[in-house]
Lab assay of single mutants.
Amino acid sequence: MAAGGDHGSPDSYRSPLASRYASPEMCFVFSDRYKFRTWRQLWLWLAEAEQTLGLPITDEQIQEMKSNLENIDFKMAAEEEKRLRHDVMAHVHTFGHCCPKAAGIIHLGATSCYVGDNTDLIILRNALDLLLPKLARVISRLADFAKERASLPTLGFTHFQPAQLTTVGKRCCLWIQDLCMDLQNLKRVRDDLRFRGVKGTTGTQASFLQLFEGDDHKVEQLDKMVTEKAGFKRAFIITGQTYTRKVDIEVLSVLASLGASVHKICTDIRLLANLKEMEEPFEKQQIGSSAMPYKRNPMRSERCCSLARHLMTLVMDPLQTASVQWFERTLDDSANRRICLAEAFLTADTILNTLQNISEGLVVYPKVIERRIRQELPFMATENIIMAMVKAGGSRQDCHEKIRVLSQQAASVVKQEGGDNDLIERIQVDAYFSPIHSQLDHLLDPSSFTGRASQQVQRFLEEEVYPLLKPYESVMKVKAELCL
């Protein structure tokens, strides 16, 4: 049975990233139509530049190519590739079939990587351009969430054990800070992308030097003109047959890092959902379990974690691919890159769409948070109580021993009897502590235990987050809708 299948058929496997999760716009960027249309555009740009620099290419040939950029006979191309065992030459023939007058000058002087690699770089750039505003929107939604809850005390956790208090907004800023680093890295790697350009079979530009009869300047002009037509500021000066596969490492490393950030955020949300302090959106008709109707599973956060793990592992592909590119190139890269580049971007696209949807509907339960604080705060307040007693004339050592005994009794009630923490009640009825009984409410005010959390939130948002989001103001209103 021949390899390949009808990918629109229910009898043929289709990647869930495309069929179930990723956005239509990201799927289109990695589609065959987008790819092969870009090949034709690159052939047109090459012909236009070659004509401008004096090669015998007519206006009629150029116009014929322009008129057929979208006229792609995919069936013919597939048949040609089956016959020739070469995808680029299959599309040269297919393009030439609908451009008979231009057929002889299509791909003039070029090698397969002229269309293959340059198209990949265009796709990487455009895919990054799709991700950047999506990530900015996630940051914006979380920034709104953090600002609104900047002063809401909550129990902090280290080692997932109760620690000092923080605020809900401050905790959210930990998430935002990681995503801001990801946004900066995505922008950097996007701006650092260079075009492969017009380089020939081993990167020496020998074929173009021959076409222009040894004119170095025209060869350099050709490279520059096509690079500018493709919208790049610069091209690699040095290439082998391909652009260095280190570029793929750079791009997928940034995406993998984004995956790590999203995994951490969504894990926190899942843990908070278990504590009943916070939940992701839950639709009115949504079913959490087929057997347990009360369940409210954090399905979206779980999906993000599941896909983020996949995204983090994909960076190993370009690392290994770059390491086995012998001399000017081997074909070890080809099949692998067809999979890992598309999957990385479709996965990143999915987790950003999902995280935006989550961040637009996060639900906080202040009463649950308050109750958990009441359970733990008495123990945390013991040092403040000791200091207040010393100020009232008591002995630190005597007070410490009193607190120690009462704390152990209260802990026994919590752990052995399943009761509430009654340390404060014990202190309130103990005559030894009568000098500070009137101060206990103040000493137990949760806001006095959150330090500068709310001020940190305000400063972080104003100095770091809002300036970073400013270039994306025009796209901030787009909502994230999930079908599944």
Rank of each mutant, 00 (worst) to 15 (best):
V262K: 04
V364G: 03
D420Y: 04
Q161D: 02
L331Q: 06
T204D: 03
T313I: 13
L311P: 04
E463N: 10
R372C: 06
L130V: 13
Y114H: 01
M312K: 05
R14S: 15
M476A: 15
A322T: 11
P467I: 14
Y294L: 02
G116A: 13
Q455R: 13
L84P: 01
K470W: 11
E81G: 00
G394L: 13
K276E: 06
I122R: 01
C27A: 14
L252M: 13
D178N: 06
A260D: 02
R296D: 07
A103T: 11
A273D: 10
D445C: 14
T201C: 01
W43D: 01
F236A: 05
A77T: 14
L42S: 03
A388T: 06
A77F: 14
Y21F: 14
A410S: 10
D317L: 08
N353L: 12
G361I: 01
Y365T: 04
T244W: 06
M292K: 00
G214N: 11
F160G: 06
A49F: 00
L132M: 11
V115E: 04
A411Q: 08
D32G: 11
S434Q: 10
A322L: 14
L311W: 03
V198G: 08
P298Q: 02
T450C: 10
T354R: 01
K233H: 08
A3W: 10
K295Q: 04
K170H: 07
Q161V: 00
S9R: 12
H107E: 00
K470L: 12
S474N: 15
E360I: 05
S395F: 06
E425V: 08
H91V: 04
C173L: 03
A127N: 04
E370D: 13
A206L: 08
F195E: 03
I237T: 11
W39D: 00
R338A: 01
I122C: 09
A230N: 01
D87L: 04
S447G: 12
E328K: 01
L307W: 04
P378A: 04
V115G: 01
E464K: 08
N336H: 02
P435T: 06
L440V: 08
S151I: 08
K402M: 01
P153L: 00
V324F: 13
D6M: 15
I122K: 06
R85I: 09
R141F: 12
L272Q: 13
L165W: 00
K229H: 05
R303C: 03
W39N: 06
Y243T: 15
R83A: 12
A230C: 08
A308D: 00
L252F: 08
F449V: 04
G104I: 07
Q41P: 00
Y365A: 09
L132Q: 13
R37Q: 15
L252D: 06
I106F: 07
